[in-house]
């Protein structure tokens, strides 16, 4: 974390309703530049909905989301992408018919400028684009140690590797804010350790700010700088891992309270 914490994104009093169901009610928190921020909570607490609000997939009925000092109203997801928000999904959302490399190259799509006529002939700017961005993607492939599956269609990969490719695809966007929705769900211990290492490396090497949803408390407490806890759409705690761990409300939420 830098010496003077700078707020990258702040969420103020956000309320999201689906008809009569209130998924998130009046939640506020902020994400500082360069930190790893975890969002935890029991199932159905509204964590994924929160991420969906942040990258413009859902539009909260009330409240404000300020990103890079700009408060936005309704925003389409591709605009969020162009502003440097990338994310991975809870259930892998890779492009199954494409190879690993193509999936990662898709992450560079906003940075490719050659028009369709150059692309038809694959010369000039189009070829330059392809090679230049391929170089960047290869860097990420090296970084995440997936060289051997470069040309394999992702549909054929095992689950752990798919998760890794998804991270690679998000990294290819060179995001300022990376949203990870349960990056370690369904992984074995070794894969989890690898993934933790990658997340920390990404944070250190690229200085990417990371917001992370995760159920493995060990992982959350080790990785994150600050944790926000949601339950039934409300924020019940916010602070460093140690503060959150000892918070009675959090313990109640996770372990239940005797009636």
């Amino acid at each position: 974390m830098s010496d003077t914490p700078q707020t990258l994104l702040s969420v103020e009093n956000v309320t999201l309703k689906f008809g009569g169901v209130t998924a998130i009610s009046g939640v506020s928190f902020d994400i500082r530049k360069g930190e790893i921020r975890a969002i935890i909570g029991p199932n159905g607490a509204g964590k994924t909905s929160m991420l969906n609000c942040i990258n413009g997939f859902y539009h909260p009925q009330e409240g404000r989301i300020t990103y890079k000092g700009e408060t936005r109203e309704r925003m389409r997801p591709h605009v969020a992408a162009s502003q440097g928000i990338a994310r991975t999904f809870q259930n892998v959302a890779l492009f199954r018919g494409m190879t690993t490399l193509d999936n990662i190259m898709t992450g560079r799509t906003l940075k490719m400028k050659a028009n369709i006529f150059w692309q038809m002939l694959r010369i000039g700017p189009a070829l330059k684009d392809e090679i230049q961005h391929r170089e960047y993607c290869e860097e990420i492939i090296d970084f995440l140690e997936i060289e051997h599956i470069r040309k394999v269609p992702v549909g054929r990969l095992p689950y752990g590797l798919q998760k890794r490719v998804e991270l690679a695809r998000a990294l290819a966007m060179q995001p300022d804010l990376l949203l990870l929705d349960e990056p370690m769900a369904g992984m074995n211990l070794e894969e989890k350790q690898d993934m933790c290492r990658f997340i920390l490396d990404v944070n250190k090497t690229y200085g990417t700010t990371i917001a992370l949803i995760e159920h493995d408390m060990g992982v959350v407490m080790d990785l994150s700088d600050r944790v926000v806890v949601l339950e039934y759409g409300r924020k019940i705690a916010d602070g460093t891992p140690d503060e959150v761990k000892s918070d009675q409300k959090v313990i109640d939420a996770y372990l239940g309270v005797p009636h």
């Binding site: 997801p77 591709h78 969020a80 492009f95 199954r96 190259m105 898709t106 799509t109």
Partner: peptide
């Protein structure tokens, strides 16, 4: 690039939109 965009839309349109 354009072909990858097409295939991305085909395979997972929500993820494609979030990629920009």
């Amino acid at each position: 690039n354009i072909g990858r965009q097409w295939m991305a839309i085909r395979d997972m349109d929500i993820a494609a939109e979030l990629m920009g």
